[in-house]
Amino acid sequence: MSIRIISALVLRYLFLYTRTPMRLVELVFWPLVDLVVWGNVTVFIQKNSDAEFGGFILFFLGAMILWDVLFRAQQGVAISFLEDVWTRNLLNVFVAPVRTVEYLSATFFVGFLRILVTCVVMGLVSWIGYSFNIFQLHWWLVPFFLNLMVFGWSLGMISTALILRWGQAAESLAWAVPFFIQPVVAVFYRVEDMPAWSQPFAWLFPATPIFEGMREVMKTGTMNWNHLWLAAGLNVIYLTIAGWLFVWVLNMTRKRGLLTKFATQ
C-alpha cells in the first residue's frame, strides 16, 4: 500500500471540490436543512413538555449530527467512485498501478474529510441556534465518530459494489443505501420503542449501539462499554464482508468483461 498513490487520488478529489463549489454546497446545505427542521421540532417539543424531558429531547440534534457522520462517510466512498464513472476516468485509474486497497483508502479519506466539513458546520449551527453542544458527549465522541465512520465506509463499499454489479442504472443506490437501514438502527428512538419483532434486527448493525449509547451518555453522562465493544466487533465483520464483496464484484466485472463497458459508456 503506497501513501503516495493514496494522496495522489485524494488530491484529485480535492481539486474537484475546489473546481466545483456546487459540491461543497451539497455538503453543507442539506445537513443544514435537516438540522433546522429537527432543531425546530426539538424546540416545539421542549416548549410542550417538562424541563427534564425537554433537556433530554436535544438528542434529536445529536442524532442528526451523528447520522451525518455515517452518511458522509458512506458518500465519500460511493460518490468518489461515481465521480470517476461520470468523468470517464475509471479506466485511467484501473490501468494505473493503483491497488484496490489504495483506491478504497483514498475514498475512505475523502469520506473523513467530508465528515469534518459537515460536522463542523452542523456542530456550530446546533450550538449557536439551538444551544446544543455536541461536546457534551465529551470523549465518548471519539469512539462514536470512529465507529460510525467505519460503518459508513462499509456501506459505501456495499453501495459501490451494487452499482458496479447493476450498472449506472443503480446509481441512486449511492444515496439510498444508508436510508435502507435508518429505520432499524435506532437513530431517533430507542430500540425498546421499536416493534418487538424488529428489535433483534436492530442489534445486527454497528450503528445501533452507538445511537443507544449517545442517548445514554446525554442522559447519564456515561454508557455501557459493552455497547462500544459490540459496535467495534460488528464493524470488523462489516468491513471484512463489504471489502470482500467489493473485490469479488470487481473481479466478476473483469471476468464478464463489463468493467470497460461500464467505464466508457
Binding site: L11, R12, F15, L16, T20, E83, R88, N92, A263, T264
Partner: peptide, 17 residues
C-alpha cells in the same frame, strides 16, 4: 474513449497522474 476528469484543469489532471 477514455477521458481525464473534465472538471479539472489540464495541469491538475496531469499532476494527479
Amino acid at each position: 474513449y477514455t477521458a481525464l476528469p473534465g472538471n479539472l484543469l489540464v495541469w491538475q489532471n496531469l499532476l494527479v497522474f
